[in-house]
Design a binder for these strands. Sequence first.
DNA 1: CCGGGGATTATCT
DNA 2: GATAATCCCCGGC
Length: 202
Amino acid sequence: MKRLPRSFYDRTDVLLITKELIGKVVRTNINGEITSGRIVEAEAYAGVTDRASHAFNGRRTAKNEQMYSPAGTVYMYICYGMHMMLNIVTNKKDVPDAILVRALEPLEGVDVMLARTGKSSLDYTLTKGPGKVAKALGLSKLQSGLEFGAEAIDLLDDGFRLDEEAIGTSKRIGVDSAGEAAEYPYRYYLKGNKYVSSRPWK
DNA sequence: CCGGGGATTATCT
DNA sequence: GATAATCCCCGGC
């Protein structure tokens, strides 16, 4: 179990980083409660040139400010006023690339995640979808701006390995209004994993 | 299993 | 006042 080095995040190819992120482990320690899960679905948002990105065309506001932080920073986005979403900032400071974590396969602290989400038993709905991932991990705006490796949140390689062909791609979810960018194959997922959000490659 | 619509609120214009 | 990288529940098949 080893922490991903800063050099993992500090690269220019956000698509490559997103693909390599599949299979890695996110772990949080919120008020002493440890939870973790393996990333089985993620989407790349390519900075200022990607119309689906919050930083498209250089847009920079209080809301997306963390996207301009150095590689390896946590960017929490509040969607629809109630759902928290976990993003991983990549590339150099002031180059706003980010990766959205859309689904996890639960590992540690399943009981804690069940309590946080109000569920009674473990099934595929626990961490399937970006809002549910953040809720299960206990993340909120409080963690936005932290760096991975901080006490509250970390990103690890536990030795899990997968074949290139085990990873599928598709267009991204929920960004239909982004015009041509909505069709970009920037979503990566672990084929056959039950925690991957369903059938969106139609 | 699948699709439609309402919930709900921080942030932006 | 409008918008938004979603979720949940309900109805129909």
